[in-house]
Design a protein around this nucleic acid. Structure first.
Length: 948
RNA sequence: AGGACCAUAGCUCAGUUGGUUAGAGCGCCACGUUGACAUCGUGGAGGUCGGCGGUUCAAAUCCGCCUGGUCCUACCA
């Protein structure tokens, strides 16, 4: 083995081997355990969130696989409608100078597929770099044939049950992308804005109680004035009671619109009068429904003012009686330009009462960045009410558990206030809606045009055209858990692996995805999609900032694995910025933070960092310091293994019949291993990856390396030690390491496999060439191997060694200088331990002599430390710096006094003694005795030195 | 406006049902290249657990209020 751990040399090699040997596929034996990967966008590249999530899933899958489960980690990618379409549109614009309309629908979709075949594998290659043990043989894509079939089936069946319907409704419209988007894709941003107060003249010579000839309404969107169909006042509002049922004359348009009484109008806000624009505002839509007001749409799909408005009733039926004409002055103007003109015209007409500056929140499309408009359009909807009920119950009954549990409240809150789900999108890339229209606008829903004709008995010469729209991406991903397993066929995989065991996902898509999976799976499978949902937080940068391209603080997991030089990193962060003026600041921040670029750390160290930071459900601040630390941990494990191999390869490791003797240290480390195995297993069961990684880290570094390896040296290097004891130590070295590697494997698959291949033959657990750590049994804790007495003896030994090291440090004695030590005032047991452990003390504490002193009075002047009741003395008459030592002792005595004072106060409190449980009181008394003993010793020592 | 979560060492974080001398890693200081490892070893400094009040024999831990932060939902006609 190389002296230093070199991750890049081992990682790709092992991944290929595992995949080639078929270790990722289900074993077909044992209890099923399955995870469906949240399908990443096929356009995507691996970001820190993916890397984090994949690490958690892979750790779970590898662990369960080793436990003997029949594991399936289902992999696949999402076609990601809008994202992919935009990407390919940009590409053809750049390369061919064409729009998708130049190409036409079919040719454009061919282009998208072409792109997918060429570049769609980027993210899956990166997934391999993370070590993800997904079953590639079952890889799916949400637009593949089988999935298309499942999507159609679901659509047709829901439509048959009238759970899918089509209607003209107000939806969030993206004027740039020309499509409906869901509430969830709308990002609300706070802004400073103007709030215009307009006068609407009363018709027919009416006046208000205050004698005014107009009502005042206010709006942040003056352009919607053109679509007003009413003014609302509160039914309780005495100021306007006499005007209800009367009319105002809509300025600029001249339409008479009614004054209605509706609770939507808030008497305490502004004038108490509200303009009602049912076709352009969600609240007004509801008012329009209640008050039976017409809907007048004045916007085109690009949110420009129409030449002629479109009027409908609440059912979406045209209202031919309403005059659709709009002022010519605004025809074709963009909404923001129209806004300016309308404000100016209102002012010119003396109808602008005031302009207020307010802070308000505007909806933006998260893809286009454009301001979203509520727009009246024909869309397909899923009626969610009947689907939501069982989906809520599934969580209430505990059929699905959220980890951490508080996300259940978030889920309930959303599910109990669910609106019908608009599933149609005006895009080209996606699952085209399986609905056909004849010339009269009759709609036929079926799995294919042929089925539509057959089902509805349509003549072959009747022209049918398919609906132009595609389905919301989340409609298809809602079928992910069962669609990937072959549904609607009743496959064996479906029977075996559904419901899946756990869904690992970010809280940000609980609504988008988790809730919809639960609803659709409940409907079509009659069961839950997964039994548990492990919800993790966002991966933020070291300062707690969200990572984003525009901030230039993005870390690429692959760069953390392979390393990247500073110039490349700066180039990457500043290369394709939307706001190039930020480049300078980003470059500087990057140079300050990573003056040397980023060193390679390897996948295992990155994974271990994620796991160590994966505390329940909250966002994590990615800590580069930890990444370095865990890379060092890998190096530590690597070198400990080198030590073991150097001492065990080619030697007898106790596999044969020859007798074996286990030392105290051997029994102790085996005992501690059992406890560590139990800890790691428990932590994984509880999704406490931080605890699992920490338990492993501490055992490997603080016990196996720091103590056990050191304790093995005196045995292995002592010519006088027996063959049995050497055999026993070699066997323990190798077996414990082999168990460590199995324990580490789900968290750090590469390094553990690499080392295991060398160690397993020595431990007798290697089945030959093609054997892999991936398929070894998970270490089971054996409580019969827990050895309390060995633990006590080792604690004693460590205590004495640390005492001597302390004395060296305090007395400023060179670490390498051999010393003599005396042990005294202890028990028979202490004396026995000294006799048994002299070689260990000699090696680890650098003692050339260690003797038991029966009579403490005989002790020469010494530096002293307490181990339990026993004193450790290092005689050193010449070496003591009197003043410094007196000062140190005074400080120590003071410390003990404070501790003693605290406990005496506690024990002096009658109600403490009376009310606290007996063991607690006993413990305090014990502590008091210990502190007092320490103090006595310190005082004796002080007096001795003072007397010099 | 309503709700959720968070606040522990310079930094990133653990801390089970209240009882610890409040822990880890990184960073910092001192010493050290002994035959696995300087990506290391040994020792050390560093915290009135955001503030105030309450419950209790006992509070980092439970309750209330306040401050600061993050996020979600709603509203802004």
């Amino acid at each position: 083995m190389d002296k230093t751990y070199q991750p890049e040399q081992i990682e790709s090699r092992w991944y290929e081997r595992w995949e080639a040997d078929g270790h990722f596929a289900p074993s077909g034996e044992g209890a099923p355990y399955s995870i469906m990967i949240p399908p990443p966008n096929v356009t995507g590249s691996l970001h820190m969130g993916h890397a984090f999530q994949d690490t958690i899933m892979d750790t779970l899958i590898r662990w369960r696989r080793m436990q003997g489960h029949n594991t399936l980690w289902q992999v696949g990618t999402d076609h990601a409608g809008i994202a992919t379409q935009m990407l390919v549109e940009r590409k053809i614009a750049a390369e061919e100078g064409k729009t998708r309309f130049d190409l036409g629908r079919e040719a454009f979709i061919d282009k998208v597929w072409e792109w997918k075949h060429e570049s769609g594998g980027h993210i899956t290659r990166q997934l391999r770099r993370m070590g993800a043990s997904v079953d590639w043989s079952r890889e799916r894509f949400t637009m593949d044939d089988g999935f298309y079939k499942a999507v159609q089936e679901v659509f047709v069946r829901l439509h048959q049950e009238k759970l899918i319907y089509r209607g003209k409704r107000l939806v969030n419209w993206d004027p740039t992308l020309h499509t409906a988007i869901s509430d969830l894709e709308v990002e609300n941003r706070d802004q400073q804005g103007s709030f215009w107060h307009f006068r609407y003249p009363l018709a027919d010579g009416m006046t208000t109680d205050a004698g005014l000839d107009h009502l005042v309404v206010a709006t942040t969107r003056p352009e919607t004035l053109l679509g007003d169909t009413g003014v609302a006042v509160n039914p309780e509002d005495p100021r306007y009671a006499s005007l209800v049922g009367k009319f105002v004359e809509l300025p600029l348009v001249g339409r008479r619109i009614p004054i209605v009484a509706d609770e939507h109008a808030d008497m305490d806000k502004g004038s108490g009068c509200v303009k009602i624009t049912p076709a352009h505002d969600f609240n007004d839509y509801e008012v329009g429904r209640r008050q039976d007001l017409p809907l007048i749409n004045v916007f085109s799909q690009s949110a420009a003012i129409l030449t002629r408005a479109e009027a409908f009733d609440i059912q979406g039926r045209p209202l031919p009686d309403i005059d659709p004409s709009l002022p010519e002055a605004y025809a074709g103007l963009d909404r923001f330009e129209a806004r300016k003109r309308i404000v100016a015209d209102m002012e010119a007409a003396g109808l602008l009462e005031q302009i207020e500056t307010i802070s308000n929140t505007l909806p933006y499309g998260d893809r286009s960045g454009d301001v979203i408009e509520p727009l009246l359009t024909d869309q397909w909807f899923v009626a969610v009410e009947s689907l939501a009920k069982p989906a809520i119950e599934a969580v209430e009954k505990g059929d699905i558990q959220f980890v951490p549990k508080n996300y259940e409240n978030m889920y309930f809150a959303w599910m109990r206030d669910l609106q019908d789900w608009c599933i149609s999108r005006q895009l080209w890339w996606g699952h085209r809606i399986p609905a056909w229209y004849d010339e009269n606008g009759n709609v036929y829903v079926a799995r294919s045009e042929a089925e539509a004709r057959q089902k509805h008995d349509l003549s072959a010469d009747l022209a049918l055209t398919q609906d132009e729209d595609v389905l919301d991406t989340w409609f298809s991903s809602g079928l992910w858990t069962f669609g990937t397993l072959g549904w609607p066929e009743q496959t064996e995989e479906l029977a075996t692996f559904h419901p899946s065991s756990v869904l690992v996902t970010g809280f940000d898509i609980i609504f988008f995805w988790v809730a919809r999976m639960i609803m659709l799976t409940g409907k079509f499978m009659g069961e839950v999609p997964f039994r548990q949902v492990y919800v993790h937080g966002l991966v933020r940068d070291g300062q707690g900032q969200k990572m984003s391209k525009s901030k230039g603080n993005v870390l690429d997991p692959i760069d953390l694995i392979d390393g990247i030089d500073l110039e490349s990193l700066v180039e990457k962060r500043t290369g394709s910025l939307m706001q190039p003026q930020k480049a300078k600041a980003i470059a500087k921040a990057t140079r300050d933070e990573f003056p040397e670029g980023i060193e390679p750390h390897g996948t295992d160290a990155l994974r271990f960092t994620f796991l160590s930071q994966a505390t329940t459900g909250r966002d994590i601040k990615f800590d580069m310091g930890r990444l370095d630390g865990y890379r060092n941990f890998c190096n530590k494990l690597w070198n400990a293994s080198r030590y073991v191999l150097i001492n065990a390869e080619g030697e007898d490791t106790g596999l044969g019949e020859d007798p074996v003797e286990l030392s105290l240290a051997d029994r102790w480390i085996v005992s501690r291993l059992q406890q560590t195995e139990a800890q790691v297993t428990k932590a994984l069961e509880e999704f406490r990856f931080d605890h699992a990684s920490q338990a492993l880290y501490e055992f490997v570094w603080n016990e196996y390396c720091d103590w056990y390896l050191e304790l093995s040296k005196p045995v292995l290097w002592d010519e006088a030690a027996s063959a049995e004891s050497k055999r026993g130590t070699r066997r323990t070295l190798v077996r414990v390491l082999e168990a460590i590697l199995r324990l580490a494997h789900p968290m750090m698959p590469f390094i553990s496999e690499e080392i295991w291949q060398r160690v397993a033959p020595l431990a007798g657990t290697w089945q030959g060439e093609r054997d892999s750590l991936m398929v070894q049994p998970w270490p089971e804790s054996d409580s019969t191997l827990v050895d309390e007495s060995a633990t006590r003896d080792i604690e004693w030994l460590k205590g004495v060694i640390i005492a001597v090291r302390n004395i060296r440090a305090e007395m400023n004695i060179a670490p390498g200088k051999p010393l003599e030590a005396l042990l005294t005032k202890g028990s028979q047991e202490d004396a026995r331990r000294l006799e048994a452990n002299r070689p260990f003390l000699a090696k680890l504490a650098k003692l050339e002599r260690a003797e038991w002193l029966d009579d403490p009075e005989q002790a020469p002047l010494s530096a002293t430390q307490l181990v339990g009741e026993m004193e450790v003395l290092v005689p050193m008459a010449d070496l003591i710096d009197k003043e410094a030592e007196l000062a140190r002792l005074a400080k120590e005595i003071d410390k003990q006094d404070k501790l003693i004072g605290g406990i005496e106060k506690k024990l002096g409190n009658e109600s403490f003694v009376a009310k606290a449980p007996e063991p607690v009181v006993e413990k305090e008394r014990g502590k008091l005795a210990d502190f007092q003993a320490s103090r006595r010793l310190l005082v004796e020592q002080r007096d001795k030195i003072a007397a010099l």
